[in-house]
């Protein structure tokens, strides 16, 4: 059942069409959605406010989705935030790297709107008990939100 949720979502995609598509897919949830057109812009926005869910395109200029995720995960505030990766590629090495960075879910394009909404709702509803943060064995495990550190903006 789709109902409205409170939450903020950051959509980072260099494609205007994809940003429009993702925003439309999430529209029934009436979330607060903010967009960025590349990884660097997305990181800057993430510095300004805390988002509950981040949706990142894999293939972007300047800073790709994995590099952006890596930088987000280096910040205590985003260590446990659900990050969805949207991609048209399926290169196994890439996905394995995404796993190491604790990408929460991967979506192939064209993204199934119902599945995206369901995953977003679950991500927003999910509240796991906190465990010690900074555990290298559990990079994706939930921990107490820390202060947001300035990520190192760099291209890879």
């Amino acid at each position: 059942m789709e109902t409205c949720r409170t939450g903020t979502v950051l959509i980072v995609d260099d494609s205007l069409a994809m940003r429009r598509m993702l925003r439309k897919a999430l529209a029934p949830l009436a979330l607060d959605i903010v967009e960025a057109a590349d990884g660097i812009g997305g990181l800057k926005l993430a510095l300004q406010r805390e988002f509950d869910v981040v949706i990142v395109d894999f293939n972007m200029p300047n800073l790709n989705g994995l590099a952006m995720t890596e930088q987000l995960r280096s910040s205590p505030r985003y260590r446990n935030t659900p990050i969805f990766m949207v991609t048209s590629t399926c290169d196994q090495t890439t996905v394995e790297r995404g796993c190491r960075l604790a990408v929460t879910a991967w979506f192939y394009k064209p993204v199934d709107a119902a599945l995206l909404r369901a995953k977003t709702v679950r991500a927003l509803d999910q509240s796991l008990p906190p465990i010690a943060s900074g555990s290298p064995e559990h990079p994706g495990a939930r921990g107490p939100a820390g202060a947001l550190e300035e990520p190192k903006l760099g291209t890879k």
Binding site: T87, C90, E96, C99, A105, W106, F107, Y108, A114
Partner: peptide, 11 residues
């Protein structure tokens, strides 16, 4: 187990 399944339409 961080399996490599990806989401795509058609559930």
């Amino acid at each position: 187990h961080c399996d490599l399944r990806m989401e795509q339409g058609g559930s």
